[in-house]
Design a protein around this nucleic acid. Sequence first.
DNA 1: GGTCATAATGCAACCGGTTGCAAAAACTGA
DNA 2: TCAGTTTTTGCAACCGGTTGCATTATGACC
Lengths: 331, 331
Amino acid sequence: MSVTLKEVAERAGVSRSAVSRTFTEGASVSHKTRRKVEKAAEELGYHPNALASSLTTGRTKLIGLISNNFHNPLFLEVFDLFTRSLQDRGLRPLLVNLTEETDPASSVRLLRQYSVDGVIVASSTLSPEFAKAFRDARMPVVHSFGRFASAPSVHVVGIDNVECGRMAARTLLKRGYKKLAFLGGPREATSTVDRRAGFFEVLKGESEIEVSESYATAYSFDAGRHEMLRLLEGPPAEAYFCGDDVLSVGALSAVETKGLRIPEDVGIIGLNDMEMAGWANINLTTIRQPVRQIIDSSIELVVAMLDEPDRYPEARLFACEVIERGTLRPL
Amino acid sequence: MSVTLKEVAERAGVSRSAVSRTFTEGASVSHKTRRKVEKAAEELGYHPNALASSLTTGRTKLIGLISNNFHNPLFLEVFDLFTRSLQDRGLRPLLVNLTEETDPASSVRLLRQYSVDGVIVASSTLSPEFAKAFRDARMPVVHSFGRFASAPSVHVVGIDNVECGRMAARTLLKRGYKKLAFLGGPREATSTVDRRAGFFEVLKGESEIEVSESYATAYSFDAGRHEMLRLLEGPPAEAYFCGDDVLSVGALSAVETKGLRIPEDVGIIGLNDMEMAGWANINLTTIRQPVRQIIDSSIELVVAMLDEPDRYPEARLFACEVIERGTLRPL
DNA sequence: GGTCATAATGCAACCGGTTGCAAAAACTGA
DNA sequence: TCAGTTTTTGCAACCGGTTGCATTATGACC
């Protein structure tokens, strides 16, 4: 089948060890043998078998990348960045699609079978417990886009969703909206809970501000549109803080369908700043989540854990920022 | 570190072979030992190391999934389906993001190092040569969404882009459009070339039909919008066949920006039927590519090649269908 | 109970590498 | 030239499994 170490060794007239050493960084080989080996390897078209070597080195350079967000356009960007960054560091992503049907425990088993060096859980909707299952199995794990906790049980890299809620509230207040609403994602999602909390925290103090809340069943276009259509059967709020950008786009389309103008009649602010939010026909005012930084930091963290498996769990938070576009009335 | 075969064998009081056989489908083990082994394994929390076994079996159950389409929303659906289907068959996707910078040869090397059982190249813009590099390295490979060829050099699963071009032309003719245009994706992409060919083939015969053509620099929103804005500086065509759906959405937004009505002033037909095309605020008439079928078929094919590595290359084509929505005038 | 076919088991070699260790080779300085 | 030091090298054991083969245990049948 494939060319092996042994064949190269024979051709080069050296021992197998010598060949192995030629291909291991920092091993002791003389120039002469190295050249002989490289020549033989070249002629035979030899490439070391990463899996075989992982057996003794204990490193596969495989990173499990788990997500359940295969319907959120933001995650195409997320996958793009993750795969690029991992590749740049010589790591390979083993992708796991966590569907409703798949048993969480089975993904732990799976990634253990493949002896991945580390695991990145990329999801804003999964509970911290999920990532913890990997830690319990003694695998380095980082929860990206996960919920901030002041005493995290696993490494978390993401944003402070509560603060995002506050930010949204302040942004709306500053623009003079009096009748506000929170249009959240699924109630169970930790991100929904936190964003709501921050939003209401700021508004609670404000007299003469009216706030209402409701929830879409998913972070999706259809759910957002559906819920907004329902809301618009009654008198609308002046501005909505929507669970995320996809939800916002759904809500926007509902508003248009009902013949209301944006931002004159109804204002909308989203969260994420997915690429599409900037498209001219959507032009969504939103809160940007620094995706690239979160991803780079997640990878750094998981890499650091390779050498330091018992590293004390930390939460890394990145600041978000409001991106002004066309779905809120100007200041 | 991790529990091994040997430890289980010792605990169960049997040989290592016995343990190995307990975990291999169809091996000969008595009920009694099997039970002993299972008990010991359970107590120790043993799980076989897939990579170690791959060394002797020659099967890793790893499938390289290569793509360069990390900016096309359709591919989020593609990745979703690929990962699910692979998982359902007990295969694991090793994702490779092929960027402009990455050297094609290096991805061959990479996937060879990880002894993937097979490779799926998922891209409509890559040349058939790319997939061929894997075949030359004697790896089972399937080019999904690749270019149809009557004498394919590697397995191709996809659609007949020429026929799609014809289909678009006929659809526009049937609606009585007289002044048509092709707004293609990048000139180099085989899909662009083929779609154009089919489109013009049908229209060439038609007298009193006026056709023009131009190209966007990428299958992207910005490129589509940019090119359409440019076109709209002159007198517009009555209807455009756009390179794909993202391009179409960009074009749509340009049309709206210029204050023209859709479909009254300008008609647009796309290709792909990505999820977003059905969103109420986009509502794009388009040609649906049967993504699920293409993916299932690709996986079937690559699985079949595991047992039959020299299987004669074939091209599998799936029929497309026009999805009527709101961007073309009705019949 | 004895013969024979069949099923279950363990041994040992192997998959494609790595690595500790001791021996050999290559330097160093006097 | 030689002892002492450093580098390079090969041996052999190991990583965590699988598998062909010979041996032993089991069961069927008379």
